[in-house]
Design a protein around this nucleic acid. Structure first.
Length: 139
DNA sequence: GCCAACGTTGGC
DNA sequence: GCCAACGTTGGC
C-alpha cells in the first residue's frame, strides 16, 4: 500500500463535504496538472491519503482511501485528465498544521514543504506514521 | 492583498 | 527546442 496527500481549498471542497459523501466517496476531479495526474495514475485501490486544507487552515484534517483507480475526469471532455475516487475513513482528532510539519525536522523533506503548490503528492511510509501520530489516529 | 514559485503556452 | 510571457497557486 502506498500513501498520498490530497490538497483542497476548503471553500471549494472541504473535509466536511468529503465526510458527508460517506462510503459512496467522490471523484477527485478538477486536477489540471500533469505531475498530480501522474501520481493519481499510480494509485491503487486501498491506498491511503491525507486530506489537506490549504488557504486559511493549512492543516491535515483527515484520512481517505482510494476506492477507484484513475479514470477519465467527468468535469472535462479533454482526454488528458484523469482522477481517482476517494472516501473519507478517519478524521484527525487533532488537525496537523503546516507549522507543525515545518517545525519537525523529520518532515523537512516532505513534498508539502518542498513544493506546496502540487495538489496531489506522494507521502513516504515514515512521514505517514509521524503525521498519523500527531493527528491522534492509528496509521 | 501581495508576491514568489512554478507550470504552461506560444513565438521564434 | 528554447525562452519569454503569462496565469495560477498558496503561503504570508
Amino acid at each position: 500500500m502506498r500513501y498520498w496527500l490530497f490538497k483542497s481549498e476548503p471553500g471549494n471542497w472541504s473535509w466536511q463535504d468529503q465526510v458527508a459523501k460517506g462510503d459512496a466517496g467522490e471523484e477527485w476531479d478538477g486536477v489540471r496538472n500533469y505531475q498530480a495526474r501522474n501520481f493519481m495514475r499510480d494509485m491503487s485501490v486501498g491506498d491511503r491519503g491525507f486530506f489537506y486544507h490549504s488557504q486559511n487552515e493549512k492543516a491535515v484534517v483527515g484520512i481517505v482511501e482510494v476506492m477507484a483507480e484513475a479514470h477519465p475526469d467527468s468535469t472535462t471532455t479533454d482526454e488528458r485528465w484523469a482522477c481517482v475516487d476517494i472516501r473519507a475513513i478517519a478524521s484527525a482528532k487533532q488537525p496537523v498544521a503546516l507549522d507543525q510539519i515545518k517545525a519537525d525536522p523529520r518532515l523537512s523533506d516532505m513534498m508539502l514543504v518542498r513544493n506546496p503548490r502540487l495538489s496531489v503528492q506522494p507521502v513516504t511510509e515514515r512521514e505517514w506514521g509521524i503525521i498519523c501520530d500527531m493527528a491522534g489516529i492509528a496509521p
